[in-house]
Amino acid sequence: MTTSASLDRTEAEAKAKDGAPDRPAGPPSSPVLDVHDVTVAYHRKPVLWDVDLTIDRPCLAGIVGPNGAGKSTLIKAILGLVPKASGSVRVFGKPVGAQRRLIGYVPQRESVDWDFPVTVLDVVLMGTYGRLGWFRRPGRAERSWSMECLERVGMAHLADRQIGQLSGGQQQRTFLARALAQRAEVYFMDEPMAGVDAATEAAIFALLRDLKTSGKTVFVVHHDLRTVPEYFDYTILLNMRLIAHGPTATTFSPENLRKAYGGRLAILEAAGEAVRARERSE
């Protein structure tokens, strides 16, 4: 065990020295994400049918659809957190299990116990655990990197707080900082903007754009149709099946939205407003 641990360490040191992040391990031509024919059923009741989805280039993708459309389930199925009735998922051309280091995940805020006795910095450090692998402890490099990530979400001054004392928006930022600390290539975020204040939402959006500019791919489950065209350059419309996916400019159309949401007036109005706003800005 000693030898393998020291081997790990030298490897990590070498990596830290040249400072280059891991490049995607698959062949360069392989798509970022390839979801093939995925069906998910809870107790024989399908929640996702036959989803086929290929994302070739890095993008900032919104996963949109009505309640119960299977948005979170899609993310969880991709990450292997729920069993698939059929289908396969590849990230950069390899099964997800082999690409865990390239994947960042932001679960829904309610999924953890905020009474847990850890500080904000501890939570962000958890983002580095995947890369550290078994047994190795986060060292000074991980700590300063985690502080940097906290800095980027504007939470550095709260690093020593217990997480239960944070507001909803601050909790969400902590989760985002943790995702940043993962140094992933592809991020999956489950409703990061649900129940947060406007300032946090703006901060999250700025961060998403940063990620995109640095060539990462981000999938975001999103519930607010009005902001879809503003936030995302790629849209995945879901309602138990894949309704449409593609660049937001073409996918986020009233016809597609009606297919996903039905004829409910308020939603279509909101979306129409968003589409018009986009057209004005172009």
């Binding site: 957190l81 299990g97 280091r101 116990d113 850890v118 958890m126 655990y129 890369r131 047994f135």
Partner: peptide
Amino acid sequence: TLLWKELSLVSFDPALATAVGI
């Protein structure tokens, strides 16, 4: 001591632990 990091991650957020390969 040896599994400090793994224990705290799995206790706090098992889904993330599985997603990052622990």
